[in-house]
């Protein structure tokens, strides 16, 4: 079984976010990057499926060279080779088009990725990739097993789960608890450096949108402590400050 795992290179969730160049670029100085946490779940399950069924794992990142550390970590965790599409991942459609192009060339049985990235959080790339490849896509997938040419999986839905079966190939957007994040071992870390990493140029994609600027959410206000029996003050604040009543 050939598995393609798509990973994003995203700022650590504790990173302080600031913008430069008139709020059109993220200030990367001092920012630590990680593999997108949902992508990390997808990768972990891919490694387990490979252990069970054999085959290979290719990890794919659409991004610039500074993301290669996360690619190498994915190789250390258990991917066999990697592809980096050398470009800035400008929007979901553009990223999906790059993934779809690589996927066509590789003929994968299973394309796994996180249900969403944690920087732009669009949560639509898996759907777009499925559409571009004309194969089914499902998300958010929280359990996945493979039986021959059939994927048996659970998807989270409003208020519960649905259990589905579908024939391969598929595109799946993954989330916990599909697998536990893997921690690379020493041997994996050392062999990662020798595994192939192909850097390819992006295919041309019509520009769907242009960036104007970024803004940060408004800072959170200070907490106001109100005595448990002071209901009147609480109601007054909910009316005057929170404006929810």
């Amino acid at each position: 079984m050939k598995i393609l795992v798509c990973i994003t290179n995203v700022p650590d969730t504790t990173a302080k976010i600031a913008f430069i160049d008139n709020d059109t670029k993220l200030n990367k100085a001092g920012v630590q990057y990680i593999i997108g946490p949902y992508d990390d779940y997808a990768l972990a399950r891919a490694v387990e499926l490979k252990e069970q069924h054999g085959g290979s794992i290719t990890v794919l990142n659409v991004g610039e060279a500074d993301g290669e550390q996360q690619i190498r970590k994915a190789l250390a965790i258990g991917a066999d080779d990697a592809i980096r599409v050398n470009c800035e991942p400008s929007d979901s459609y553009f990223v999906a088009a790059q993934i779809a192009h690589c996927a066509k060339e590789g003929s994968y049985d299973l394309i796994l990725m996180g249900r969403e990235s944690i920087d732009f959080n669009s949560g639509v790339v898996h759907g777009l990739v499925g559409e571009m490849l004309n194969i089914p896509s499902f998300s958010p997938v929280m359990k996945l097993d493979i039986d021959g040419n059939t994927a048996k999986f659970a998807r989270e839905i409003e208020g519960g789960k649905e259990y589905l079966e579908a024939s391969l190939p598929l595109v799946l957007g993954c989330q916990e608890p599909i697998a536990e994040w893997k921690i690379p071992n020493m041997r994996g870390i050392m062999t990662a450096r020798t595994k192939p990493l192909n850097v390819v140029e992006p295919v041309a994609v019509p520009e769907a949108a242009t960036l104007e600027k970024y803004t940060l959410p408004a800072p959170k206000g200070a907490v106001k402590m109100i005595a448990a029996d002071d209901v009147e003050s609480l109601i007054a604040l909910l009316k005057s400050e929170a404006k929810v009543l």
Partner: peptide, 17 residues
């Protein structure tokens, strides 16, 4: 205009130590 937003609703591998 895009809103850049970082979610932190779960424990992450590189969270604050």
């Amino acid at each position: 205009m895009a809103l850049f937003c970082i979610t932190s609703i779960y424990k992450l591998p590189n969270m604050a130590h």
